[in-house]
């Protein structure tokens, strides 16, 4: 009874293993264009490096070659066609697996010849008594070898179905950043990135809070303060924004964006101060995209502020 049980368990496990292997061997899921392109890139040598593939190299040429491979994969060309295309332009040495023609053939034949020679030696040295058994064993080994040879994936042989476009849609990083801020509350850069993501998601009120926190962490950084003020304006709190900017300019009087924003904010109440601020801005940043408009505005007397200047 126990024997039967043991045997049935063993047979069950055997069947399980065979089923598993069979399903793995037959299940070739969808191959993405990126994967195929990467596989082809791994089979091409960077012509300006020492034996690196273009997939691994950071040389400019490798980058251009990678882009070309991606383009061609998207056009539906096979790995072999792409490799041949590159070999035509850069010579056979661009192929990390040498071609099966010419001297490259020697490189493929040599290992096969070595294995063949080893098999013959083992057969003869195995002795006449065991020769038949050896032959059986070697036949088994040979089958395995050929099987592995055939099953080892060739560089991107299948042409992918349903190719993805690069960067398939924006990623929602808000939860990650929110989490990150909780983990590292003292990281001002993180707060800024989080606030930026909130702004992008249209959550202005929350963004203001995040900017406020960043400003507390970097009280002397005019860029942070400027972005804080900017967010305040967007969420309809110009008064608070003015306070933030006034403080900024006390720390650094030559921060052009702050001058512009503050000038725009105060011109309704205090036109003289506004014109002083804006003049200072034009002097500091004559190349700024808004500089011309501001100049025109100043020259035309302080009438209506062009809308583009305000956030």
């Amino acid at each position: 009874m126990r024997r039967v049980l043991a045997w049935s368990v063993a047979v069950a496990i055997g069947i399980f293993a065979i089923l598993g292997l069979w399903s793995a061997a037959t299940d070739s899921g969808p191959v993405s264009a990126e994967d195929t392109a990467r596989e082809v890139s791994q089979s091409l040598r960077c012509p300006t490096c020492a034996g690196e593939s273009i997939a691994d190299s950071s040389a400019l040429l490798s980058d251009a070659m990678r882009r070309t491979v991606e383009q061609q994969v998207r056009q539906g060309r096979s790995a072999h066609e792409i490799q041949a295309w590159f070999a035509e332009r850069y010579g056979d040495e661009v192929l990390l697996a040498p071609p099966h023609t010419g001297y490259g053939w020697l490189l493929w034949a040599a290992p096969v010849a070595l294995v063949g020679a080893a098999v013959v030696v083992l057969l003869v040295r195995g002795g006449p008594a065991n020769r038949r058994r050896w032959t059986g064993l070697l036949a088994l080994a040979a089958t395995t070898l050929v099987g592995v040879w055939l099953l080892v994936p060739r560089a991107g042989a299948p042409v992918p179905q349903g190719m993805q476009q690069e960067g398939a849609g924006p990623v929602d990083t808000l939860p990650i950043l929110r989490d990150a801020v909780d983990h590292a509350p003292g990281n001002a850069g993180l707060r800024l990135a989080f606030a930026g993501a909130l702004e992008e998601a249209g959550k202005d009120a929350e963004a203001v809070k995040a900017y406020a926190a960043a400003t507390r962490l970097r009280p002397l950084d005019p860029d942070t303060r400027y972005r804080h003020a900017f967010a305040l304006v967007r969420s309809g709190e110009p008064r608070a924004a003015r306070e933030v900017l006034e403080e900024s300019l006390r720390v650094r009087q030559d921060h052009a964006p702050s001058l512009l924003l503050l000038g725009a904010l105060v011109h309704g109440e205090d036109p003289d101060r506004a014109s002083a601020l804006l003049q200072q801005f034009v002097q500091l940043a004559p190349e700024h995209p808004a500089a011309d408009q501001v100049t025109a505005f100043l020259e035309g007397g302080l009438g209506q502020m062009p809308a583009e200047v305000l956030p």
């Binding site: 791994q42 593939s53 056979d92 040498p98 493929w108 395995t144 560089a155």
Partner: peptide, 14 residues
């Protein structure tokens, strides 16, 4: 001619 990872993988895997 170049001999790189693809060649070694094919020849050594078995």
């Amino acid at each position: 001619l170049s001999v790189g990872p693809p060649w070694y993988h094919r020849t050594l895997a078995p």
